[in-house]
Every structure is written in C-alpha cells, then in structure tokens.
Simulated assay, not measured.
Amino acid sequence: MTAASLELSLGPVSFYWTRERYFAFYERACHWPLSAVTLGETVCSHRRDMKLADWLEIGHQLAAAGKQVMLGSQTLIESNADLRDLAKLCDNGDFLIEANDMGAVHRLSEAGLPFVGGAALNLYNVPSLRVLKDCGMFRFVAPVEMPGKDLARLLADTRAAGLALDCEVLAYGHLPLAWSSRCFTARHHQHPKDRCQFVCQNYPEGLPLTTQDDSRRLFTLNGIQTLSGACQDLRHELGDMADMGVAMARLSPRTEGMAEVVADFDQARQGRCPAPSPLTLVDAELCNGYWHGKAGMDLAVLED
C-alpha cells in the first residue's frame, strides 16, 4: 500500500536555536520534498533571537522554493506583550497563520483570515470542527494522542457532515504533551523564569528526563513545554493515513539528520519502507503507541 498522494509538511522548530542555525536549517529545507512549512516561535516569548522580520525573510525563501508557508502562533499566551506579538503575527500581511490558541483563532476570525488549527486546540469532534471552520479554519492538525481508528471515524463523520477540511498528522518527532507557566529548564539550572539566562539554547534537542536508573528517556523538557522522550515514527502508517483521508504528514524538525528523516518519509510514501527500525541517522528512541491506542511511549511491532 502506498501513500503517494499524501503530502509532507515541516512543523515549527520546538527548541531554542541560534539565529544562524535557523537560517542554515531552512536554507537546506528549501531543497527537501516538502509541500508546506510552518515557521515561528510557538513555545516561549523569551526566545527573541528571531524577529518577525527574520521569519518573514525565511518564509519568502521557502515560498520561492514552492513551499506553502504558515506562521505558527505562540501556544501559551501569558502577558500583554504576548498579545501584542500575536497581533503583529496575525497582521503580517504575507503568510497565513497556524493558530495554536483560541486568542489567535478569535483575532483571525475577526479579521476574516483563513488559518490552520494547531494540535493544541484539541479538536476531537465534528461540532468543534464546525465551529472553527465557521471561524475560517481550512486545515487542522489532529491531537497527538488521538488513535488512528478514532481519527478515521472523525474524518468520515466530518465528510458526512459536509465539512471540507484537510487534516494533518504529526508523523515524526517528539510529541508535544503539555505547556506550563513554569520554565522547567530554567528551574533545572536553579534560575528564576524571568531571569532564565536563555539556558534552553544549550539544549537544541531539549533536556532529556530519564527514569531514576537512567534506563529510559521518559520526557523531553523544553522550557515551559514538556515533550515525549521518544520521537513518534509513523512511516509505516502513511498508507492507512492516506486511505482515511489525511492530507499531510507533519515532520518535526531535529538538529541533525533531518534531511534523512524527510527522505525516509518520502520513500515511505512510495511504499518503499524497510522493516520497522530506528531511523539510523538520528539518535532517538521511537514510539507510535498513541496511534495504536496504547501508551504513547510504546513502539508497536509491525509485521509485513
């Protein structure tokens, strides 16, 4: 079974990188077989190396390479300054927005602007999708913990209800699990959140949190965000996704080996997928439990 019609997209960078690393990464991404790219700082407003003008510059480079470009909004709005930044983002005039909180949805709806609904909006049923479609949503990212069979049912019900909405699924990367007003990375270094000294930038792949005996990576700390310890890998599910009507498989950026990850998923779309095994060029544990209705950290053993 192949999924050649399924498009690949690149999600926003979850971690705090240097300005130079962002520009170098997206220069390479221009040449990858991706249909869409979401840019922007979606986690923490303290991360200010990249200005809106920088994201717009990168966005135009990607658009010139034939990619659909979205700008992701911050997921947790905590201050009036965050609201002002949100307003500037939504009013950028160049690119559409991926709304990651209801404040962004409200502003975009008031302005009559179409948008993508991010996974953090937690859209689980047809009434919720209908409300946001009426607000201008044309695509949504499925909640990361939704099992594949439940998503298949939701998409079938959505079509039966006459709602024309594309769906995107996070197919590769650390799963975003929670956001908090506390900064766990700063606390690890005994810094107060407001004087964090930007220690997140010391962890371009996040800060691993392991079991007491260090036998397993449970979570990945990323400032105010908690991610899964393992990376979700749904290469072997792309055919089923295409059959159920998923439009895009999202890949979450990593610092190393991302070109190989994209290439592996591009091959998987063509039905050329090797036996289940870790992506050899990326040092990360893998998981797919949520998709199979199990504990998220599990890796189901698939048989050909």
Rank of each mutant, 00 (worst) to 15 (best):
L299K: 15
A171P: 05
A64R: 09
D213P: 00
S277V: 05
D94A: 11
L281F: 07
R182N: 14
Y203D: 03
C273R: 11
Q267F: 04
D194C: 04
E260T: 15
T280D: 09
P12G: 01
N80K: 11
I77A: 09
L10I: 00
Q232S: 12
G103V: 00
C196E: 03
G206S: 03
S45A: 15
M248P: 05
L62C: 04
F140H: 12
M70H: 12
A120E: 11
L154W: 04
K294T: 01
C196N: 08
G245R: 05
N122S: 12
W32G: 06
M258N: 10
A65I: 03
S79F: 03
F184K: 03
M102T: 13
L221E: 06
T75H: 04
S252K: 02
L71K: 10
K67F: 01
V116F: 14
H31C: 10
P253C: 03
A142T: 15
L113Y: 08
K51Y: 06
D54R: 05
G257Q: 12
G118K: 11
L251F: 04
A230Q: 02
A300F: 04
L281H: 10
D166M: 05
G239Y: 02
L121A: 13
T226A: 12
I224L: 14
D243P: 05
W17L: 12
D49I: 02
R272Q: 12
D213Y: 05
A160G: 11
L6P: 05
L71D: 12
G11F: 00
L165F: 00
D264Y: 10
I224F: 05
D233F: 02
V262D: 10
L34W: 04
P114R: 06
G11T: 01
E20W: 06
